[in-house]
C-alpha cells in the first residue's frame, strides 16, 4: 500500500520498539477535588494540608508497547485524550527515556509537537537557523534552504518578528517547514497540523508524501480520523497506555470508531 512499493528498502525496519514502559513525574499535580479538608476538625485539616506539600505525581503513560515499523511507512496513532499517544511519540523521537523496554530507530527523528514554538523570544528567522542546526544541518545548508522554509511556511514578513507575536497556526507552519527542511529519517507529527488552515494542510500532506518517497518514516498523531485515513496506511490504537490494535488503517480506524459508538450507545 502507498509508498511501500516506491521505497527501496521498505522491508527493513526503521523503528523497533520492545516492551516500552514510560513512567514520568508531573509537578503541580495536586488534585483539588480530593481535598476533603473542609469536613475535618482543625488539627486534621492542618495535617491534611501539610501532606501534599510537593504535589508531585507519577504517571504511567505507556505500558508494554511493542511494534516494528519499516522504512517508508506512514503510521497513524489514534486513541482518546490521555491514552499515551504523545508520550509514545516522544519516546520514539528519543526525547523521553524509556522506564522499561528498549527503542531503536534509524537516523534522525524530528518531532513536530503542538507547542510548535522553539524559542518564543526570538524571531522566526533565528528559530529557522537554530532549529535547522539542531536538526543537524550546517549553517550553510540552513542559509541555502532559508528562503524555501520561509516560503513554505507562508508567514511572510512575520519571519522578522519574535515568535511570541505569532498565532498558533503560524508557529505550527514555521515549525513544520523547519522540521521537514532537514529531510528527517523519521518525521513525527503530533496534532501540529490541526492548527493550520485548509490550504496549508493540503500543502503539508503533499510534503509528507514527498518525505515518504525518500523512504522516511512518518508518524502522525491526530484526533481527526479523516486526516489519518488520508495520510496513513497503518494505524496503532492506544488505550490507557496500552497498544490494543496495530494493523491496516481501514480496519483499525473502523474498529476504533465502533468502540466509540458502543461507548455512547
Amino acid at each position: 500500500m502507498g509508498a511501500t512499493d516506491v521505497a527501496p528498502d521498505a522491508t527493513t525496519p526503521s523503528v523497533v520498539c520492545s516492551g516500552l514502559d514510560i513512567v514520568y513525574t508531573v509537578f503541580g499535580a495536586k488534585q483539588k477535588g480530593t481535598d476533603t479538608g473542609g469536613e475535618l476538625p482543625l488539627v486534621e485539616r492542618l495535617l491534611a494540608r501539610r501532606n501534599p506539600v510537593s504535589s508531585v505525581r507519577k504517571v504511567h503513560a505507556v505500558k508494554d508497547v511493542s511494534f516494528v515499523v519499516n522504512h517508508g511507512e506512514a503510521v497513524g496513532i489514534i486513541g482518546r485524550n490521555g491514552s499515551g499517544k504523545s508520550t509514545l511519540l516522544r519516546a520514539i523521537a528519543g526525547l523521553m527515556p524509556p522506564t522499561n523496554g528498549r527503542v531503536w530507530a534509524a537516523g534522525r527523528p524530528s518531532l513536530l509537537g503542538v507547542n510548535a514554538v522553539l524559542l518564543t523570544g526570538l524571531t522566526g528567522a533565528k528559530n529557522v537557523m537554530i532549529g535547522g542546526l539542531a536538526l543537524g544541518l550546517t549553517p550553510a545548508q540552513v542559509r541555502d534552504r532559508y528562503a524555501g522554509i520561509v516560503d513554505f511556511s507562508g508567514i511572510g514578513d512575520f519571519v522578522d518578528l519574535p515568535m511570541s507575536a505569532y498565532s498558533s497556526g503560524m508557529g505550527a507552519r514555521l515549525r513544520f517547514a523547519i522540521s521537514t527542511a532537514a529531510a528527517p529519517d523519521i518525521l513525527m507529527i503530533d496534532e501540529a497540523l490541526a492548527t493550520g488552515d485548509a490550504e496549508f494542510q493540503a500543502r503539508s500532506r503533499d510534503r509528507i508524501a514527498e518525505i515518504r518517497r525518500d523512504a522516511s518514516t512518518v508518524f502522525l498523531v491526530s484526533h481527526s480520523n479523516a486526516a489519518i485515513r488520508e495520510s496513513c496506511d497503518r494505524v496503532l490504537w492506544m488505550e490507557q497506555g496500552r497498544l490494543v490494535m496495530d494493523g491496516p488503517t481501514d480496519e483499525v480506524v473502523r474498529a476504533y470508531e465502533q468502540s466509540h459508538r458502543k461507548a455512547t450507545a
Binding site: 520492545s18 511494534f67 497498544l243 490494535m245 496495530d246 474498529a255
Partner: peptide, 15 residues
C-alpha cells in the same frame, strides 16, 4: 478484526 490486528509480541532478544 482485533485478532488479526493484535500487536506483535516482541521479545527483548528478538527486538
Amino acid at each position: 478484526v482485533a485478532e488479526r490486528n493484535r500487536p506483535v509480541a516482541l521479545g527483548p532478544e528478538e527486538a
